[in-house]
């Protein structure tokens, strides 16, 4: 009888979201086993299942996030041809990597990198770990460096807040944890590697389907805008650059399009939320306009 109380009690404590989930569970089950409330085997079993439940996206190390991000980016870039313009790409990376230093997460496993996609659609994608891709159509919504910084800071916000990783269905990671749990002591091979690859493939599909087709939940988009405002302020850019970009986007978006028209909240909704945060002020910065215009030649 007692064990029916103890087991849920441990699970409840652990599922409450503590940072030291595994350690606490092991301690709790250890004590319960030592006092004879549950058997050692039951304690081990609870540890295994809690570990699988607790270690959802938080259990993904930056190294694993990097491999997920690479494959998500490769998938996106296989469907969206890159725009091969060295000067523009260097400028984009200078602005983007500068901004990343002001995020709450300037260090990712492999760093932040930016690329242009050769499409008139209005799109921008942030793959986990810091692989950020922006379309020519999106860049055409930017009439100043502030506006461009707004777009890039928003995408950095998605990376910082792990929005991509949160799109992964928890069952994929539970499956991966199970394989790794049983095979921790030896190198994976054959079926285990195939099963782990399946969990990986499913994780990639979850992320690409979200960012390319359905879009994130509205609250994630507003969170990324909020993170962008913080980054822009710290970096010395007027965050109203993001508002000016959204106003231009509103003019450029084609109703019924499969790009931002489909995957993001309407620009006016984002502007309304942003205005609550930052008020409205002109974002012109003449000292940066020349280099912006020069770099964007050939767009």
């Amino acid at each position: 009888m007692k064990r029916f109380f103890i087991i849920p009690a441990i699970l409840c404590i652990v599922l409450a979201g503590c940072a030291t989930l595994d350690k606490l569970t092991e301690a709790g089950t250890g004590i319960a086993a030592a006092t004879g409330v549950i058997t050692t085997d039951e304690a081990k079993s609870i540890n295994r299942s809690v570990s699988a439940v607790g270690k959802v996206f938080e259990s993904i190390t930056p190294e694993q996030e990097y491999y997920i991000g690479r494959t998500v980016a490769a998938t996106i870039l296989s469907r969206n041809k890159p725009f091969d313009n060295r000067a523009m790409t260097t400028y984009l990376n200078t602005v983007g990597q500068y901004l990343s230093l002001y995020s709450d997460r300037p260090e990712t496993f492999g760093g932040y990198h930016f690329l242009i996609m050769d499409s008139d659609d209005i799109n921008a994608f942030a793959a986990p770990g810091g692989f950020i891709m922006v379309s020519r159509g999106m860049l055409k919504c930017c009439k100043s460096e502030e506006a461009l910084a707004g777009v890039l800071a928003h995408e950095i916000g998605h990376v910082e807040l792990n929005h991509g990783l949160q799109a992964i269905d928890k069952s994929r990671l539970t499956a991966a944890a199970t394989i790794l749990g049983t095979e921790a002591a030896k190198n994976l091979g054959g079926k285990d590697l195939a099963d782990l690859t399946k969990a990986f493939e499913n994780s990639i599909s979850d992320i690409t389907a979200t960012v390319m087709n359905s879009g994130y939940a509205r609250k994630f988009e507003f969170q990324a805008d909020k993170a962008a405002v913080i980054i822009l302020n710290r970096a010395g850019y007027n965050p109203n650059g993001l508002v000016s970009m959204l106003k231009q986007m509103e003019r450029n978006l084609k109703p019924g399009g499969l790009d931002f028209a489909k995957t993001h909240p309407a620009p006016q909704d984002r502007i309304a939320e942003l205005t609550k945060l930052i008020g409205s002020a002109p974002s012109a910065a003449p000292e940066r306009q020349e280099r912006f215009t020069d770099s964007m030649k050939g767009l």
Partner: peptide, 18 residues
């Protein structure tokens, strides 16, 4: 939970398989 093995989980082997 206090330990992480580098290269465990989604890694270059999994990417190669993918």
């Amino acid at each position: 939970g206090e330990m992480a093995l580098a290269g465990k989980g989604f890694n270059s082997d999994v990417e190669a398989q993918f």
